[in-house]
Design a protein around this nucleic acid. Structure first.
Length: 708
RNA sequence: GGGCCCGUGAUGUAGUAGGAUAGCAUGAGGGCUUGCGGAGCCCUUUGUCGCGGGUUCGAAUCCCGCCGGGCCCA
C-alpha cells in the first residue's frame, strides 16, 4: 500500500501538532485539518488550525490572535521540517506548506513504480462482497435507466475487486411479478409470433408494452363508466329539487367526457356548484384525463408496433386480469407446464439482456431467481420467523400481514436515526406506517420477497457486505428491508446492507416507462454511438482495416456512453440527451482514451523500455508537478468512491488527470528533451501516468486504447 | 397533507464534516501545428451559488422559513 498524498498530509499534521505542543497549546491531533490549496500561490497544502485554536482559546481579538499564532506555528515548523517540505509560510492566519517539487516527484514516482498495477489499493482488509445491480425485469430490453444502474454497479464491483475484496456480481431475476405474467399472457394471445430478426428482448418488450397499455386503457375506461353511473345518481338527487331536465345532466357528462370544456363550464354554471357536484365533477375529470393518457399511449404503442398491437387488441379478454392472476398463482405453486414455459421464455430474454451487457464489458457471477426463493420455502420461513419474533402481525380488520416497523423502531433505538435520517424530532414512531407483507388473498408483496433475498445474501451466502444498486424510488422499501433484517437478528445490518440509490433518467418532459413503451433502448444507443465513432475514425485513420476500425469504434463508443452516464453524481436526475451521450470532445470518454493513447504512443517509440534509473528530482516545472500531485491522490479518490458509492468522483479525477497530462504534453517535449537525464525522467513520468490512468479507466470499465 | 433528493455563468456540472480570488466543460470569439498523434493546447467572454432571514472573525457549504423541479408515502 502506497498512499503518497496521505503520507504527506500525515507528515504535515504531525509537524503542526508538534509545533502546537511547543507553543504549549493543547489541541487534538485528529482535528488538525490539512487540505490541498485551491491555488498554488498559497502553496501546495494548507491548514486553518490557527483559526480553530484562536476560536477555542481567545474569543475576542480573534483575528489578531489567529494571525500571530499562525506565524508562531510556522516559524516553529520551519525549524523541524523534513526536506520534502521546502518551506512553511503564515499568511493571514493560514499556514501554507510548499513542497520541494524535486523530492516530491522522486517520492511519488518511485513509490508508484514499486507498486505499479497495484497502485491505488488503499487497504489490506479482505472482505467478501456482493454487488447486486441492474436486476431489470426480464421482459423488455434494457434502456438507459438500466444502463446507469449497470455502470454504477459494475464500477463499484471493479473497484472492490481491485482493492482485494472477493466480489460476487449478482442479478436478481424478478420472475414472479405481475409484469412477467402480463407478458406471458400477451405471448399466449399471439401464438406463432414471428420475430422477423428482431432481438428477443425488443420483441417481448413490444408485446409487454402493448399488452400492458391495453389492459391499463381498459381498466381506466371501466372506472370511468362506473363513476359516470354514480355521477348520474348524484346529480339527479341534488338537482331534482330545482327540476332540471335529465337532458342537462346527460349533456354535462357527455361534454366533460368529450373534452368540450366550454360547454361543460356553461352547464355547470346553470346546474350550480354544490360541493357534492363539484367533487364528483373533479373525479370524473381526473378519470377522463387518465383515459385520454391511456389512449395517447395506445396510439403511440400502436404506431410503434402495429402488427403486435392490432392482433392483441382483437384477442385480449375482457377478464384478462383473472387470467393473469391465474398465471401468477400457477407459477408460484410450481405448476409444471407454467414453470417450464415461463422459465424458458424468461431465460431466453435474459440471454438477450446479457448480450447487451456483454458488449459493454459487464458480466455477472450469478443470477438469483425470485421464484427459487419462493419454491425453496425461504420466503415462507422468513415470514414465520418474523411472526414468531413478533415483528409481523395479522391485521384483523384488513386480514393482511403487516411488518411491524413501529415495534422494530421501538425495540432497536439504533435503527431510528437510520430510518428518520437524523430528523427524528418531527416524526413520532406512532405515526409511522407499517407496510403490508402479504395481502388478504394470500399473495405476497415485493417487499417480503426482497427481505427474503436480502437475508439470503447476507446469511446463506455469508458475505460481509451486500451492495445493492437500486433506484431512489425504492428508498422507503429498502429501509423496510433493513429494518426487517434487524428484526430477524442481524445486528450489524446497517454496515452490511447498503442501498446505493441513484436517480432515474428522464426523457425530455416525461418519465421513462417500459410499461408504456416510452424508452430509449440501450441497444439503439450503443449502435448509434458506434456508428458515430466509426465515422470519426474513418476520417482520421484511413490505413486501418474495417474490422480494426469497427473494434476501435466500439471501444470509443462504449467509453463515451459510460463516461456520460457515470460522470454525474447518482443523486442527480439526468434528462436524456443524445448530444451528451455521443460527445467525443473534451470531458468525455474518448478524451481520456486519447490522453492514454498519446502517452502510449511515446512509450511505443522507445519500445516500452522504461529507464530503470534516472534522476526524478529533475521534474520541477509546474506542469510536471501538477501531474505528479494528481497521481499522488489516486488511492484517496478510490477510498472516497468506495465510501460514498460515487463513481462520478473517479470519472472527474480521471478527466482532470488527462487534462493535466495534455497540458504537460503540449508544453514539454519528452523524446526531444533538453538533455538525456531529463528525457529519462520525463519518460518515467509518462510511463507512470499511463499506468495510473489505465488502472483508473479499467475501474470505470472504459478500455484504454493504444491507438485511435 | 407528511418525508427524501436536487436547484451554482446561455447550457451541463464540481465544490456542501465552514476558510483565501466559486473550479471544469460545452457554447461564442481569437490564436497555436512541416508534430513525442490538433479527438489537443493557450487567450477572451458570461455567475445576485433559487429567494429571504439567522449563527460566525469568515457561509455555495451550518440553522430556520419560503419558491421551483423530481421521487416516495397518503
Amino acid at each position: 500500500m502506497f498512499r503518497p498524498y496521505r503520507h504527506i498530509v500525515d507528515i504535515i499534521r504531525d509537524l503542526v501538532w508538534k509545533a502546537l505542543q511547543k507553543c504549549k497549546i493543547d489541541f487534538d491531533k485528529d482535528n488538525i485539518k490539512v487540505e490541498e490549496t485551491r491555488s498554488r500561490i498559497y502553496g501546495d497544502f494548507f491548514t486553518t488550525v490557527a483559526f480553530s485554536v484562536a476560536k477555542k482559546y481567545f474569543g475576542e481579538k480573534f483575528r489578531e490572535n489567529a494571525v500571530s499564532l499562525a506565524e508562531r506555528i510556522a516559524s516553529k515548523i520551519n525549524k523541524i521540517k523534513p526536506s520534502i517540505i521546502a518551506c512553511v509560510r503564515a499568511e493571514n492566519g493560514y499556514i501554507n506548506f510548499f513542497l520541494d517539487r524535486g523530492l516530491f516527484a522522486k517520492f511519488v514516482i518511485e513509490g508508484i513504480s514499486h507498486e505499479w498495477e497495484k497502485y491505488g489499493v488503499f487497504t489490506s482488509k479482505r472482505r467478501k462482497i456482493i454487488v447486486e445491480h441492474t436486476s431489470a425485469n426480464p421482459i423488455h430490453p434494457l434502456h438507459i435507466g438500466h444502463a446507469r444502474n449497470a455502470f454504477i454497479g459494475d464500477c463499484l464491483a471493479r473497484i472492490n475487486q481491485f482493492i482485494g475484496n472477493e466480489v460476487s456480481r449478482r442479478f436478481y431475476v424478478n420472475d414472479c411479478g405481475r409484469q412477467v405474467a402480463v407478458l406471458m399472457y400477451g405471448l399466449r394471445k399471439l401464438k406463432n409470433l414471428r420475430s422477423n430478426g428482431v432481438k428477443l428482448d425488443h420483441l417481448c418488450g413490444a408485446v409487454y408494452s402493448c399488452t400492458a397499455s391495453l389492459l391499463e386503457a381498459n381498466k381506466n375506461l371501466k372506472k370511468l363508466m362506473r363513476i359516470v353511473g354514480t355521477f348520474r345518481n348524484t346529480l339527479r338527487k341534488s338537482i331534482s329539487k330545482e327540476k332540471h331536465h335529465s337532458f342537462v345532466m346527460e349533456t354535462l357528462i357527455r361534454s366533460i367526457a368529450l373534452g368540450q370544456d366550454e360547454i361543460a363550464q356553461k352547464i355547470k354554471a346553470i346546474v350550480g356548484d354544490s360541493h357534492e357536484v363539484a367533487s364528483v365533477v373533479q373525479e370524473i375529470e381526473n378519470l377522463i384525463k387518465n383515459v385520454k393518457i391511456s389512449f395517447e399511449i395506445l396510439s403511440s404503442v400502436a404506431s410503434k408496433w402495429p402488427r403486435i398491437y392490432y392482433r392483441l387488441n382483437l384477442r385480449i379478454d375482457s377478464n384478462a386480469d383473472t387470467h393473469i392472476r391465474r398465471i401468477m398463482q400457477r407459477y408460484e405453486r410450481g405448476d409444471r407446464e407454467t414453470v417450464s414455459y415461463i422459465r424458458e421464455t424468461v431465460s431466453r430474454i435474459l440471454g438477450a439482456i446479457i448480450n447487451t451487457l456483454k458488449i459493454l464489458h459487464i458480466t455477472f457471477d450469478a443470477f438469483d431467481w425470485e421464484s427459487d426463493l419462493i419454491w425453496k420455502g425461504l420466503v415462507e420461513s422468513i415470514t414465520n420467523e418474523l411472526v414468531k419474533r413478533g415483528y409481523a402481525y395479522r391485521d384483523s380488520e384488513t386480514g393482511a400481514l403487516f411488518l411491524n416497523v413501529q415495534k422494530i423502531l421501538t425495540d432497536f433505538p439504533e435503527m431510528r436515526e437510520f430510518y428518520f435520517e437524523g430528523k427524528n424530532r418531527t416524526i413520532k414512531i406512532e405515526n409511522v406506517k407499517n407496510p403490508v407483507l402479504i395481502r388478504r388473498d394470500g399473495t405476497s408483496l415485493y417487499l417480503l420477497r426482497d427481505i427474503a433475498y436480502a437475508y439470503y445474501k447476507l446469511q446463506s451466502l455469508k458475505v460481509d457486505v451486500s451492495i445493492n444498486v437500486i433506484g431512489v424510488d425504492q428508498k422507503l422499501e429498502q429501509k423496510h428491508v433493513v429494518l426487517a433484517l434487524r428484526a430477524l437478528g442481524i445486528k450489524d445490518v446497517l454496515s452490511r446492507y447498503k442501498h446505493v440509490a441513484y436517480e432515474l433518467i428522464r426523457l425530455p418532459g416525461r418519465k421513462m416507462s417500459s410499461r408504456r413503451g416510452q424508452y430509449v433502448s440501450l441497444d439503439e444507443i450503443v449502435i448509434e454511438a458506434i456508428r458515430r465513432a466509426y465515422e470519426e475514425i474513418t476520417h482520421r485513420c484511413e490505413r486501418l482495416s474495417n474490422e480494426q476500425k469497427y473494434a476501435l469504434a466500439k471501444e470509443i463508443a462504449i467509453g463515451a456512453i459510460k463516461y456520460a452516464l457515470l460522470s454525474q453524481a447518482p443523486t442527480k436526475v439526468i434528462t436524456f440527451d443524445w448530444k451528451r451521450v455521443l460527445d467525443f470532445e473534451q470531458n468525455s470518454g474518448p478524451f481520456i482514451q486519447y490522453a492514454h493513447a498519446r502517452a502510449a504512443s511515446i512509450l511505443r517509440k522507445i519500445s516500452w523500455k522504461i529507464p530503470d534509473k534516472c534522476d526524478l528530482s529533475l521534474l520541477k516545472t509546474p506542469e510536471e508537478f501538477e501531474v505528479i500531485y494528481k497521481l499522488s491522490k489516486f488511492p484517496e479518490v478510490l477510498e472516497e468512491v468506495i465510501g460514498t458509492h460515487r463513481p462520478d468522483l473517479l470519472v472527474e479525477y480521471t478527466n482532470e488527470l488527462a487534462m493535466l497530462f495534455n497540458k504537460f504534453y503540449q508544453k514539454h517535449p519528452v523524446l526531444k528533451a533538453e538533455n538525456e537525464e531529463l528525457k529519462k525522467a520525463r519518460l518515467m513520468l509518462v510511463a507512470t501516468f499511463r499506468r495510473v490512468i489505465a488502472t483508473a479507466m479499467k475501474l470505470l470499465g472504459i478500455t484504454p486504447l493504444y491507438r485511435m
